[in-house]
Computed example of a mutant assay.
Amino acid sequence: MMGCHTKPGCAATCCRGRKDESGPVSSKFCKKHTCDHFYFPIPMKAPRCEFQKDPKDSVCPHHVICTVQGCECPRLQYRDPDNPVFRRYKFCYDHKCALRECPEKRRPDGINQNQFMTYCDNHNCIAEGCHSMVQAGRSCCERHTCGRPGCMAITVNQGRFCRTHNVCEWPDCHQPKTDPHNLCRIHTQCSTAGCTVLKQIGSMHCANHTCFLRGCNNSTGAFRLCTSHRCQFASCNEHRRTAPGALHCPSHSCRSRGCRNGVEEETPYCEAHACEAPGCRLEAKLEWEHKCLDHFKRRYESVGEARLIDEVRELRQVLGERMAVIQDQEECIRRQDAMIRRFGCCN
């Protein structure tokens, strides 16, 4: 009986399949055992592979290794959607483009020998040292694409703009821009006298001299707010009240409605609206003789009581005087009566 290895057909041990003779050159193995490098040698003029492969793989053990020179890692596999077999890319995981559907080799680093970028030449940003993927239809990633709308050129000097658009936008200035501004170093310097720090975006001053009120371009000096928005009370760094014409913060503003005068923090009302009574913290009114309502009432109660006492005293004095007159008149009448009685009896 002839052994299975002597049977005509596929040269693979114990395989009963027929040799693959579908191409211009016949393989000594069947389709399942013929290495892909028999059909497609790499490089193209290399000898055809004559080694047997596993039926579930696409290449023989000799061609499993990554094609990058010096690499001994196995080539990356993927499942063939048309056949129940694993195909292999030309490169291993470290050398194949990181974009899943791309089979190409990663771009060499260009700086470090034997180092590679993350993507291939078609998908890696062209900026030096950048490992990011390019944007669709562009040659750079988003970070290295010019920030001017519509421009797809690469940025320069690690800035936001390309060489064409990396020019200060100050009139007649041709200096390069300073991130994150659209102006050069000279025109982004804080406008406060003696300060050389960069301006805040949208402000004429640096962070230390920019008024906290949005949209204000006044310098704050040594304070948090500028003189137009800071409380006018000495050494106070708080914002003025929002009322029209207010000049002080809530702590230093008179609480009387419509009053713009300043006060000490422990005093609720200014001199014009504070009660004259010692220790009183209530609001006074002009028509209340610069007193609060309580002390105004008390004053008139005491004034009324004093007036009443004076009136009683005056009445008593008048009554006393009248009583004295009446008594004199009564005495005179008694005398007259006595004389009448006396002389009348003599007659």
Rank of each mutant, 00 (worst) to 15 (best):
V156Y: 03
S132Y: 10
V59S: 14
S132L: 12
K90R: 13
R100P: 01
I111M: 11
D80E: 07
V68S: 09
F212E: 15
E142I: 08
M133K: 15
H239Y: 11
S253L: 07
H63W: 03
C146E: 01
V85R: 15
F212H: 13
E305L: 05
A306I: 03
N166M: 06
K291A: 06
Q317M: 08
C14R: 13
H273S: 03
A153N: 11
V59R: 14
P250S: 09
R342Y: 09
R160P: 04
R160C: 07
K7F: 03
D172K: 14
H248R: 07
R107H: 08
P61W: 04
L99Y: 10
T267P: 02
R106D: 00
C275Q: 04
H33P: 00
G9I: 03
T34R: 13
A274R: 15
D54G: 01
C66T: 08
T67F: 13
F212Q: 15
Q232C: 04
A207C: 07
C231G: 02
V85C: 12
R163F: 00
D80A: 05
E283D: 05
V68H: 08
R257V: 06
F223P: 01
P149Q: 05
H248V: 01
D36G: 12
D310K: 15
C146W: 02
D109Y: 05
E331Q: 15
I186Q: 15
Q329A: 13
